[in-house]
Structures are given as structure tokens and as C-alpha cells.
Amino acid sequence: MKKLHHLIDKLILSLIGRSFTILTDTEPIIKRELAYLPDEFTAAFAVEEGAPSIIVKKENNRFKYFGYHYEPNNIDLRLYFKDEEFAYEVLGAKEGIRQAFSEHKIILEGDLEYAVSLIYIFEVVEAYIMSEKFSEKIIGYKFKRNISRLQLIIRALFLYREKGEI
């Protein structure tokens, strides 16, 4: 079961990272939170300490996705879970990231104001990826998708992953 959870965590986290980039153009909440972050702001998300992190970076008012990296440098904010099972609860649509944050299941290294921005973005991205029922539960209201789940997944599959130095 652990291996299955690990695989799901890895796939969903990658999908979330890619969706950060895709939804920047269409989702007003993401645009607003992106504006709150400083230029060149770089964030790393991982399922637990020491696991590879997906990297997203703000450049020219857009998110760029850098894929998975081991021990990346020049990171402004790192977010990871105390244990991979906690990550699975969030990435497997059992619990919202806000609840996980409140329950001390998340470790954050960096400025907490910016972390809150990223948590809002993460929450919206999850709402796009997950079922209507889960989306409403974590967002707290019936939200309007500006792009369908299928479109998002297809675009995510073909998204260009930035290479080279972060």
C-alpha cells in the first residue's frame, strides 16, 4: 500500500506543479496570489524531508515549472510533510492542505506570509484537479472552473519543463 501511496503522491505533486503554470493564465485567485510574491520567488514542495521536490519559480508574473530536484539550491520557501502518509492524505484528496497545515502536519522553511499565498494557490489547484465534492469541501464554496479537469490534465502532460539552473 505504501508503494501505491508513494506513486500517487509523486504523480499528483507533479500534476500540481505543472498546474501552477497552466492555471496562472486563467484563475484570478492564482493571479492575485502570484502578484503578492516577489519576483524570482522560488518554492519547493516535497512529500517528506529528503524526498525530491518539485520546483516552481515566479518569473515575469508567471510560474515556471522545473520538475523534480534532489536538494535544490536557491529556494525561498520549502514545504514538505512530516511524513509521506500525511502527504497522501492531502494529495489523495482526503484532507485539504489548510487542515493539514492547522494540524501541524506540514513543515515550512521560509517566510510564512508567502507560504500562505502558496497554500491558497495549492488549494485552488487541488480543487481543479480533484472531484467537485472534494473541491467544494476544501474551497468552502461552489467554485467555477475556468478550464475543465480533462483539459488541465492534457495540457499538464504536454507542459514544457524548464531545464538548467533554478
Binding site: 503578492y36 497545515f101 492547522s102 506570509e113 500562505v116 497554500i119 468552502g140
Partner: peptide
């Protein structure tokens, strides 16, 4: 409003 929305305490508050 902007500052309060980015205070981590807001994430722990009841409701969204």
C-alpha cells in the same frame, strides 16, 4: 485585508 489574508492564523480560522 491583504495583510490579514496572508497571516498564517487565518488558515486556522473556522471556515474558509
Amino acid at each position: 485585508v491583504d495583510k490579514a489574508m496572508h497571516n498564517s492564523a487565518i488558515l486556522n480560522s473556522a471556515g474558509q
